[in-house]
């Protein structure tokens, strides 16, 4: 296997990790108003994310950094080309992080309501736009060789809002919502858990329909038949159904594992459909960015491979351990004086 292929795989792994992990916390962020009836509920839900959201988000930073290091042309073309969607995602991530940390500092209803709206919107925007972005990458966007020889995006912003890409956005949005509901059902107790169960079934169905249409469309859209992608698509659908079934049977751990695996096979499928391209051009395959023409030198890839091979398992171990430390369910009754702000409580 060439270093380029290895790095293509590793970047796929980073995105899979990111979508599984931040996927559920996008979902949870959007579900707060729908699974909570009062302040204690809302804070219990937020507390399930508290220790882990930041670590989850690092996956996207590393995916970005790794793309920069391994495939600079991909990094440059993608982020300058998908400028406004990426900007909106960044704004979403900024607002979300601060909202999680600051929301419960004060007890004032207006302060909290504003942050709650911020969490809802700033979770929904990236959840939707990551899907739009990836669907566009798979579909192919107008890329052309510039006078300096670099391959640049030449479509506008609205070019990215085609029906296929928007459907991709709906898929990630609803998949993350369901995945988040599975996480909440696993991590909370009492009524929040029950509501999460019920919501997971309803949204899971919508996600299933959207995902199936999207996957069929994707398979038909590819220039040539791709048996691996087709297999992964079918596997995604099966795992999704298994997740919904486990949720229905109140086997929360399994439901969460299955929706995680479904996300993994879904993202793998998109990367398989791309390989060996990283950004196909809709203006002709001579303008495709591939793992060869977008990559760094073998030396850089070798150095980075050593770092990645040593560090990634270590990261998985200690992040996994965090989930073990905070494995207890959180219930609303454990939040003392939920209506008081953290800072207000201190001054009592």
């Amino acid at each position: 296997m060439s270093f380029q292929t290895a790095w293509f795989l590793l970047i796929a792994v980073l995105w899979i990790g990111y979508f599984i992990l931040e996927g559920f916390d996008f979902g949870v962020g959007m579900l707060i108003p729908f699974v909570s009836r009062n302040e204690a509920d809302r804070r219990a839900v937020l507390t399930t994310l508290g220790p882990v959201w930041d670590g989850n988000e690092v996956w996207v930073l590393v995916a970005g950094g790794a793309t920069f290091a391994a495939f600079p042309e991909w990094y440059a073309t993608l982020f300058s080309g998908f400028y406004l969607p990426l900007f909106l995602i960044l704004v979403g991530l900024i607002v979300r992080g601060v909202a999680f940390e600051y929301r419960s500092k004060y007890g004032k209803a207006q302060w909290r309501q504003r942050w709650d709206i911020a969490i809802l919107i700033s979770s929904a925007i990236p959840a939707l736009l990551w899907g739009v972005a990836f669907a566009n990458i798979v579909r192919g966007v107008p890329l052309e060789k510039s006078s300096t020889g670099s391959i640049e995006y030449v479509g506008g912003f609205f070019n990215l809002l085609n029906p296929y890409a928007l459907l991709g956005g709906v898929v990630t949005l609803t998949v993350f919502l369901t995945h988040g509901a599975h996480f909440l059902a696993l991590k909370t107790a009492g009524e929040i858990r029950d509501r999460a169960h019920a919501l997971a079934i309803k949204i899971g169905l919508v996600a299933a329909v959207a995902a199936v249409i999207f996957l069929v469309w994707s398979n038909l859209m590819l220039p040539e038949r791709n048996a691996k992608f087709a297999t992964l698509s079918i596997l995604t659908a099966l795992l999704w159904v298994a997740g919904m079934f486990a949720n229905f049977k109140v086997r929360e751990g399994y439901a969460f594992i299955f929706s995680s695996l479904a996300i993994a096979t879904f993202v793998s499928g998109l990367f398989v459909a791309l390989y060996p391209r990283v950004m196909p051009s809709s203006l002709g395959s001579q303008f495709d960015l591939t793992i060869t023409n977008a990559s760094s030198t073998d030396y850089t890839l070798k150095v980075m491979t050593i770092v990645a091979v040593v560090m990634t398992p270590l990261v998985l171990v200690y992040q996994g351990w965090t989930y073990w430390v905070f494995r207890k369910r959180v219930s609303a009754s454990q939040i003392q004086h939920p209506e008081r702000g953290i800072l207000d409580t201190l001054s009592q």
Partner: peptide
């Protein structure tokens, strides 16, 4: 990548490595 794509293309082979390591 967003505002400095030509810079990124020029330095990515080197500059990207410490950034990825940082992550």
């Amino acid at each position: 990548g967003m505002n400095w794509s030509s810079y990124s293309r020029f330095v990515g082979d080197i500059f990207g490595a410490p950034l990825a390591m940082e992550g």
